[in-house]
Structure formats: C-alpha cells, structure tokens
C-alpha cells in the first residue's frame, strides 16, 4: 500500500471539492478499496473519508419510491422494512453477497463501484487493460483461466465481469444513481448509463467525472410482482456469482430479467424482457445474443437459461 494523506469530509460538498485533487479517492466502507490498495491496484495519494457526510439515510421520494443514501450499509439496506416489503429483490440480492461482516461495512455507493474479481486484474504481474491501458489482457491469452469471466458485453480489451449482486437487482428495478460534482451540479444516471461497456477502454468503469461523488440511489415506485434473486455459485455462501438471475414477474407473465456474473455490468435488455412470457430459452436468446464465451465459461449460457427456467417453473 502506498502512503497517502487522510482527511474526513463533513458533508458531500466538502468531499466532492476535496476529491478534485489529483490522486484523491473517496473511502466509505473500504472493503474493496483497501483490498485493492494493499495490492497497489489502487494507489491514491489522498483518501477522503466520506462516512461522516450524513448520506446514510433511506427516505421516501415524492414519486413513491425510495432514495437510498450512498453511505447506507448493505446490511442496513437489506434490513430496511420498506425495501423488504416493496423491493424484496434488492434485499435478496444484498444478502446473497459477501459475508455478514462485509455487509455491515460495505456501502451502497461503494458496492456500485466495486471492481472486478478477475484473477488477472488482481495479480499485478499480469498485463491488464483495466489497470494499465494498452498493456493487454492476460485473461484472453492462450492457457488462461476464464471459468469465472464474462461472456457478453465484453471486448477484445477485457472480459471481466462486474461482481455486484446489488447492482443486478437495482438494474432490474430501474434504479438511478444520483451524483454530486465538485462544482455543485448534480447528475442522475440509469445503471446502463452509469456503467459503460469496456470497448477499448476497460479502465473506464463508470460515468463518474473526477471528484464526482455518488450521493444516492433512487428506486422508482414499487412495481410489485413476484421478485426473486437466484445466485449460482460454487459454495453455498461467501462466493461471487457464476451466474445470477434477478427476476420480476407479474401475474400476466410479463416482467423483467437481469443477469449477474456474465457481463461487465448488470445485464438486461428490453427485448429479453418482452420475451419473458415465452419462457427461459426465448429470454436468453435475446438476452445473450452476441455472446462470445471461452471454452471454459461457455457453460454460463446454459446455466443462465436453466436458472431462469427453474425460477419460472416455480410459479
């Protein structure tokens, strides 16, 4: 870990202002950032502690939704009675991630900004276009291990996946991310706008500008329906998803599907949602069209389809 200066921000404006300094980085839960700093994958020279900025509330919006403060912990969010009642998909996704200890510390904003678990990203001896643009992608070299990696939305520069469970639920719920810029302006993003696909610049992982801070996540009014989050992993707990499926299904058979574990961002397509009444294979035909799996991760296509089939069979 490289040495850094440490400062606490008293409010969001002070935080965003301080974060304009080159090499500055926000820290909240720290559960991913410190992990990456120990590996020197992240090397901030200044760390701005935003846990005291008062952004840990969860409050109703005038539109009938919820505004979740960026500092609300994953544990608190999963336990919020309104979330459990009106957005059970989100609660389910949260509790399927990480461990109890980590969820107590990890925040909503930090969870959105988690970086990939690709082994070649984590091993700093390996070329990685995320860590060092232009260095190459060790994960696409001959003989590489790719069982965990992405099958769609990926590029020749990067086949990493986004590791968040929470974000998959948020994508299915049409949540939006609210931010604050150092100049005081605020912005609002859909998740697809928030997470650019890697293309030839996989080091750009979000739409955030320098110093821009996530202040909250806004859930629209509840959509009801049967909501399930199913996460497939090698062990029963405390593991990242091989494939996860977020499903919202209405009584008429319509609904929404988002996938985790397969792409650089939570993966959802309108055309796939529209195919939901036709069943799992119709959905996946649309949702995974254009997939480019490796020999070792091609199973994810079949697994995604069968996981959705299982969820649909249950009704």
């Amino acid at each position: 870990m490289r040495a850094f200066r440490y400062a606490r921000a008293a409010d969001p404006a002070a935080a965003a202002s301080a974060a304009q300094a080159p090499g500055a980085k926000f820290i909240a839960g720290g559960t991913n950032l410190l992990d990456l700093m120990k590996h020197e994958i992240e090397t901030p020279t200044q760390v701005i502690d935003v846990t005291g900025t008062g952004l840990d509330t969860i409050a109703p919006t005038p539109e009938g939704g919820l505004r979740i403060g960026a500092m609300a912990s994953n544990a608190a969010l999963s336990a919020d009675t309104r979330v459990r009642r009106d957005y059970p998909l989100l609660s389910r996704a949260l509790v399927s991630g990480a461990s109890g200890q980590l969820r107590n510390k990890a925040t909503t904003g930090g969870n959105l900004l988690q970086r990939t678990r690709c082994a070649y990203f984590y091993d700093t001896a390996m070329p990685c276009n995320k860590r060092s643009p232009g260095a190459g992608c060790a994960a696409q070299g001959e003989g590489a291990t790719t069982r965990q990696l992405g099958v769609i939305g990926i590029s020749e520069a990067c086949i990493a996946t986004h590791p968040s469970d929470m974000a998959v639920a948020l994508r299915a719920l049409d949540a939006e991310v609210e931010t604050l810029l150092p100049d005081g302006r605020t912005r609002r993003f859909t998740l697809d706008a928030f997470y650019p696909l890697p293309g030839d610049s996989p080091h750009i992982e979000s739409a955030l500008a320098p110093g821009e801070m996530i202040t909250s996540v806004v859930l629209p009014a509840p959509v009801g329906g049967r909501q399930t989050y199913y996460k497939v992993r090698d062990r029963a707990s405390y593991a990242f998803a091989l494939v996860s499926v977020a499903l919202i299904q209405q009584d008429d058979g319509s609904g929404r599907v988002a996938l985790g574990g397969v792409a650089p961002r939570p993966w959802r397509r309108d055309a796939a949602d529209e195919a939901l009444p036709q069943g799992a294979s119709a959905v996946m035909e649309k949702l995974l069209e254009g997939a480019r799996p490796t020999r070792d991760n091609a199973y994810k296509l079949r697994l995604a389809e069968r996981t959705l089939a299982a969820l649909l069979e249950e009704t």
Binding site: G141, G143, T145, R235, A236
Partner: peptide, 21 residues
C-alpha cells in the same frame, strides 16, 4: 494458467474451501 505456469486463483476468494453453509 497453462501458458504462464501459475495458479491464478491464489487467494481465499478464488480458492474456495468449504464454508459453514
């Protein structure tokens, strides 16, 4: 990694020992 000659899942998140569940 059959080209570079090392175990890529070299931590306790990548190498999954049994958990309580």
């Amino acid at each position: 990694d059959r080209a570079r000659g090392f175990f890529t899942n070299h931590d306790l998140a990548g190498y999954e020992v049994a958990v309580h569940a």
